Computed example of a mutant assay.
Amino acid sequence: MRTDPATGRAFRGSQKWLQHLVEHAPERLEPPKLGRLDWVSPIPATQYREYQDYAFLDILGLGHLDTALREFWPRGGAVWDGLAQSKSGPVLVEAKAHVSESFSSPCGATAPASLELIRKSLSDCSRDLGADMRSDWARCHYQTANRIAHLWWLHRQGIRAHLLFVHFVGDAEMKGPKSAETWIAVEMAANYALGLPKQHGLSDFIHYVHTDVSNIG
């Protein structure tokens, strides 16, 4: 996604909309169960920086978990579209503007040790959540799977974190969904493909927001 090298501002897609709403209308990104969010990324003060690995822990005040993260996931892990704090815990954010973003490529790790660690962590998470073990999380909806796995890992560390999927409606430039119903169907399909039961140990900590951007210039 193209961004302004001087300011970090994105020109299109989910990155653009998330930046705009965090800055100008953050209430449109807040799930009812979480309430007000205090955003630490993406914000103008850091040129809309997105964080990963130790940096995402540090900005959330969780830098002490760096060693534990290394044991769970290799470096070069998830890049978080947004990060925030809520009254009930830190919030990890994944934003999308069109459906094809949800059907991400399989895990791209090539180093045998990295791939082995990723597969083990995904398997541990899926098993603990009661998922159908025939689902291969390293291949099927991998981006969604690894975000859920990071949420699960934080809970294993005693951190009651939340995962927020922000799905934009009405992005004509990106040919995105015109209704929230389309996104809801995609979300249900992803959970089904991952073999997740309708209710599991993280159900109350995974949230979805469907935000219409069709009238935003």
Rank of each mutant, 00 (worst) to 15 (best):
D171Y: 11
H155P: 04
R160A: 15
R160D: 14
H150G: 00
C140N: 09
A145N: 07
R160M: 08
G158K: 13
H167S: 11
R139S: 13
D171G: 11
N146R: 15
G170Y: 08
R147W: 05
R156L: 10
V166H: 10
W153K: 09
C140F: 00
G158I: 07
L154H: 05
L151V: 07
R156S: 09
V166E: 04
H155T: 15
V166I: 13
W153S: 11
L154T: 06
A145Y: 02
A138R: 02
R156C: 11
L151D: 03
R156I: 04
W152D: 01
V166A: 14
C140M: 02
N146D: 02
Q143F: 01
I148T: 12
D171A: 07
G158F: 05
I159G: 06
G158L: 10
C140W: 00
R156D: 10
I159A: 05
I159L: 09
L154E: 07
W153Y: 08
W152Y: 14
H150Q: 15
W152G: 05
F168M: 03
Q143A: 09
L164R: 08
Q157N: 07
V166C: 12
A161C: 06
A161W: 05
A149I: 02
L151W: 04
H167D: 14
I159P: 06
H162W: 01
A149K: 05
W137Y: 07
T144A: 13
Q157S: 04
